[in-house]
């Protein structure tokens, strides 16, 4: 039995401690934002936050997570009251197929929790581990810049202004 704190709620989970967090989120807790992409920690579509840091949920065994704070995209806001990152992604229409977007939002959230005024290079480096096949990178970057501004900061040397 392992106790997991997800989006502020405590859950007692009775599965093999080697089970990846992603499976527990999707199969046991019905949290479907984080996606299964490669299952090898290479594509980033499963990214969630653990103690404010972005991690690949597909290669994170729940054995590693006792006493730590897990946040998924569901924890950032709701349809009625979206969080800032979610709002910015919607306003910039950053999603095409949408498969990578929860991972992108988790990365953006982690970056903005660390600093609301990153440099353009810092932002791109932070987003780099999540892959997008549709090619909406420019819109995703715009969304992150917008979210930074909405949180009271802004990308210091933004490649494009927030409109």
């Amino acid at each position: 039995m392992i106790e997991l704190e997800v989006n502020g709620t405590s859950h007692r989970i009775n599965v093999d401690p080697a089970t990846p967090l992603l499976y527990v989120l999707r199969d046991d807790l019905d949290l479907h934002a984080a996606k299964f992409g490669c299952g090898l920690g290479q594509c980033g579509s499963c990214t969630v936050l653990v103690d404010d840091k972005p991690v690949f949920a597909c290669i994170t065994p729940i054995a590693a997570l006792a006493g730590r704070m897990i946040t998924t995209v569901e924890g950032l806001g709701t349809r009625e009251a979206p969080g800032i990152v979610q709002q910015a992604f919607a306003e910039e229409q950053a999603a095409q197929c949408g498969y990578c977007i929860p991972g992108m939002m988790a990365r953006a959230e982690a970056l903005l929790r660390r600093t609301t005024s990153p440099s353009e290079a810092e932002m791109r480096a932070a987003m780099r581990p999540v892959l997008c096949r549709c090619g909406t990178h420019m819109r995703i970057l715009r969304a992150v810049r917008r979210a930074a501004a909405m949180r009271g900061g802004g990308v210091t040397d933004a490649a494009e202004p927030v409109r």
Partner: peptide, 11 residues
């Protein structure tokens, strides 16, 4: 061993 199974074994 549990950490290896969940974090490393897939690769």
């Amino acid at each position: 061993a549990a950490l290896f199974a969940g974090a490393c074994a897939t690769c």
